[in-house]
Amino acid sequence: SQTQRTQDENEARRIAEEWKRRGYDVEVRNRNGHWEVTWD
């Protein structure tokens, strides 16, 4: 799996939607004030 971090929730949601469209299983988490998008 791969993880991308961002400070911006909207960006995190956009990234998550992009990977979901490509057929990946995606998880979005808030950790210590930043957002992590993990896909595999």
Rank of each mutant, 00 (worst) to 15 (best):
D40Q: 15
G33A: 03
D25I: 12
N10R: 11
W35E: 00
H34E: 13
V26Y: 02
E27D: 08
Q7C: 15
D8W: 06
D40E: 14
D40H: 15
G33F: 02
G23F: 02
Y24M: 06
E11Q: 07
Q7N: 12
R21P: 03
R21S: 14
E9G: 04
G33S: 05
R29H: 13
E17F: 04
W35F: 05
R29F: 09
Q4W: 09
W35M: 01
N32F: 07
V37G: 01
R5F: 12
D25G: 04
Y24I: 06
V26I: 04
R5N: 07
E27V: 14
E27H: 13
D25V: 10
V28C: 08
R14P: 00
R5A: 09
E18S: 05
D8H: 07
T3L: 10
D8T: 12
E9K: 05
K20Y: 11
E9H: 05
W35I: 02
E17V: 03
Q4N: 06
T6R: 04
G23C: 11
E18G: 05
I15E: 03
Y24D: 01
N10S: 13
W39F: 09
E17C: 11
Q4Y: 14
R31F: 11
V26C: 06
E36V: 08
N32K: 05
E9A: 07
A16R: 03
Q7R: 12
I15M: 08
R29Y: 08
T6P: 04
G23A: 01
R31K: 11
H34Q: 13
N32E: 10
E18Q: 08
S1E: 10
R22W: 06
S1V: 12
R29V: 13
G33E: 04
Q2L: 10
E36I: 09
R29L: 10
K20R: 14
N32I: 04
T3P: 08
R13H: 09
Q4D: 06
E27R: 08
E9S: 04
Y24A: 04
R13G: 03
V28Y: 03
A12R: 02
H34Y: 15
W35Y: 05
D8L: 05
D25E: 12
R22M: 14
K20I: 13
H34V: 15
S1F: 14
R14Q: 09
D25P: 08
N32W: 04
Q7K: 14
Q2W: 08
E36A: 02
W35H: 01
T38Q: 09
W39Q: 03
Q2S: 10
T38P: 01
E18K: 08
A12Q: 02
D8E: 07
R29T: 13
T3E: 06
R21L: 09
A12I: 03
R5C: 14
T6L: 11
A16K: 06
Q4K: 12
R22I: 08
V26S: 04
D25L: 10
N30P: 07
S1D: 08
V37M: 02
K20G: 08
Q2G: 15
S1Q: 11
A12P: 00
N30W: 15
R31A: 11
Y24K: 03
G23Y: 02
T3W: 09
E17W: 04
V26H: 00
T38I: 14
T3G: 07
E11F: 05
T6Y: 15
E11P: 00
A16T: 03
S1I: 12
R13V: 07
T3F: 10
D40A: 14
W19D: 03
V37P: 01
N30V: 12
W19S: 04
T38Y: 13
S1M: 13
Y24L: 05
E18W: 13
S1R: 15
R31M: 13
G33K: 03
V28K: 00
D25Q: 11
D8S: 11
D25M: 10
Q7H: 12
E9T: 02
T6V: 15
N10W: 12
R31I: 15
E36T: 06
Q7E: 13
V28F: 03
W19T: 05
K20E: 14
A12T: 02
T38G: 03
N10M: 13
N32M: 07
E27K: 10
V26M: 02
K20D: 07
V28G: 00
E9R: 04
Q4M: 15
T38S: 12
V28I: 12
T38L: 09
A12K: 01
Q7I: 12
E27C: 13
T3S: 10
G33M: 03
V37A: 02
D40N: 14
N10G: 11
R29Q: 10
W19K: 13
T3N: 06
D25R: 11
R29G: 04
W35N: 00
D25H: 14
E36H: 02
E9L: 08
V28L: 07
Q2F: 11
D8Q: 05
R31Q: 10
R31W: 08
E36L: 06
V26G: 01
W19R: 08
R13W: 11
Q2N: 14
D8K: 04
V37R: 00
Q7G: 09
R22Y: 06
H34W: 15
H34R: 08
T38V: 13
E36C: 10
Y24Q: 03
N10P: 07
G23E: 01
H34F: 15
R31E: 10
N32G: 13
T6I: 10
E36D: 04
W39S: 04
E9W: 09
W39C: 06
N30Q: 14
G33L: 03
Q4A: 13
R31Y: 10
E9P: 06
W19Q: 09
E17Q: 06
Q2T: 11
G23S: 01
V28E: 01
